[in-house]
Design a protein around this nucleic acid. Structure first.
Lengths: 115, 115
DNA sequence: TTTATATTTAACCATCTGGTTAAATATTAT
DNA sequence: ATAATATTTAACCAGATGGTTAAATATAAA
């Protein structure tokens, strides 16, 4: 049984549950960006974008570097690593679960055939 | 570039962002359970549990079958399959991102050595 | 038919979320 | 010094979230 310190997962999944933030992360995969660049694709005010960035930052998915008046954002590799590990384990768990469910369903099917 | 119908991801990640619900899913990996069984480990009222189950149901991670007055819950294999596919892709994307970030950081390190 | 069990619905509450506009702060350019 | 740019903070709002208790519903058991 795999056990995790879970408070951080709350924040990560919560951060990922918003399409604007997922989209921002997608953008950041292409490389660092400053706040206005991150804001550009969205029809929302800068303060709203600022809040999304803060949430990503709090979840540790995003890292901010101040360079003068510009704030440069990039994906945080350390947390990415941790999140990645969790996701991989979780994928594995779900994978094996799915297998057993498929077996179960196949068995059911066979049973129904026999009736 | 991988593109997803994302509304359903909102619900899945949102459902996963709560520790009670993650815990319920963990429980359901062991097999189907009725509402009271799912409720048992938690110091919260049945209506609260009922709401969590509804959220999991709405996210399609959980499937409910009424059998008389008992409601049996189990993980929904169809959605699990879809979620799994997404997670695997996402893992892959993050994996390769992580590699490139590591390379980037290594290059930075080398550069700093040279200065 | 009455009672007990399993679960939901309704009404409520405090807090969080995601947005807004207006004002503040910090830095850079003129 | 003044003006422009980049970004945040403050105050506010509507709606969602996660919990509560009390009442309703549906089924099973006595």
């Amino acid at each position: 049984m795999v056990k995790y310190k879970n408070k951080y997962l709350d924040d990560v999944f919560s951060a990922l549950s918003d399409p604007t933030r997922r989209s921002m992360l997608q953008r950041l995969k292409l490389g660092p960006a400053k706040v206005t660049e991150l804001a550009e694709p969205f029809a929302m005010s800068l303060p709203a974008v600022s809040k999304h960035i803060r949430i990503l930052e709090k979840s540790n998915l995003l890292q901010r570097t101040r360079k003068g008046r510009e704030h440069w954002c990039q994906i945080n590799p350390k947390t990415m690593d941790e999140a990645l590990k969790w996701l991989q384990d979780h994928c594995a768990l779900w994978n094996s679960l799915l297998d057993s469910l498929e077996n179960h369903l196949d068995n059911q099917k066979d049973k129904n055939k026999g009736e």
